[in-house]
Simulated scan of single mutants.
Amino acid sequence: MSSVSRATFAAATAVTAVAITASPAAAWAGGPVSANAGTPISIQMGTYPLITCPFSALNGTINAGGMLNITTATFNACTFSGSPPVTVTAHYLPWSGLLNGGSATLNGVRLSLLIDVGNPILCGYSGNLTGTYTGTASPVTASFSNTFTKVTGPLFCSSTITFSSTYVLTGSGL
């Protein structure tokens, strides 16, 4: 084999190796994103009955690299094992997060739970949501199940809660 042929063969082999090992970076369109609960949100507060929120929505933006900025979060029609009503409120917004490589995160999530049991009880919790997502364009489904730590509240408030959710994300940013 001539030296020119060997050089051409080596160059072609190197290009082929790069083409096989390189993969494109995940990219989102960038822009507005909304998320609605695909299933009721569940909040397990220690050994107490389950808190469920059938309606929850998140709104914000995502950039091309998958960075999330959640500016509003609502939880509606929440109940403590069917009754009494529970008011779940989001605090310290915006929450930052990331959708990248099948992993989903929301950081700095703070929630208060106001449980109306005659004398209302207010419990505050903080944590991060980590989970997975499927989809590469709108709609994208993200699922989370994480433990939050109590930051305020009386003894009735459990020291931790488990927050479980599945959100369906839509919008021109995806």
Rank of each mutant, 00 (worst) to 15 (best):
F144Y: 15
S126L: 12
A73N: 04
S103L: 13
F156E: 04
A64G: 15
S165T: 02
G131W: 08
S2C: 09
G102E: 06
T134H: 13
V109T: 05
S112T: 12
A64N: 15
T105I: 07
T74H: 03
W28Q: 05
T21R: 01
S42R: 13
I70A: 03
N69E: 09
I41P: 09
L174Q: 13
A90E: 07
V15E: 06
G131H: 10
A104M: 01
S112A: 05
S3M: 06
L169F: 14
A12K: 07
T8V: 10
S23C: 06
T39K: 15
A137R: 14
R6K: 12
A7E: 05
T39I: 15
C123E: 01
F144I: 05
I43T: 02
P85S: 14
R110F: 12
T39N: 14
S143M: 05
A77E: 12
N59Q: 15
G171A: 10
G97F: 08
F75P: 11
A11C: 07
N100C: 00
A12G: 00
Y48C: 08
S103F: 12
Y48R: 12
L122I: 06
C123V: 04
A10K: 05
T71V: 13
G171H: 13
M67C: 11
G108S: 00
R110E: 10
A104V: 01
R110K: 13
F9V: 05
N63T: 14
G82W: 01
R110Q: 12
F55E: 15
C53M: 13
G31D: 09
T132C: 12
T160S: 10
P120N: 03
G127N: 01
M45K: 06
I115S: 08
T87V: 15
A77D: 14
T130V: 14
G124V: 05
A7Q: 07
L93C: 11
F75H: 09
L155W: 02
P54Y: 12
P40R: 00
P139L: 08
P94T: 05
Y48F: 09
T147M: 02
T39L: 12
C53L: 12
T132D: 12
P24T: 06
T89V: 04
S96G: 14
G101F: 07
V33C: 06
F156I: 05
T47W: 04
S172P: 15
P40I: 10
T87M: 10
P49N: 02
T71D: 06
V33R: 09
V33M: 10
G131Y: 11
L99R: 00
A11F: 00
A142N: 13
T141F: 10
G127R: 03
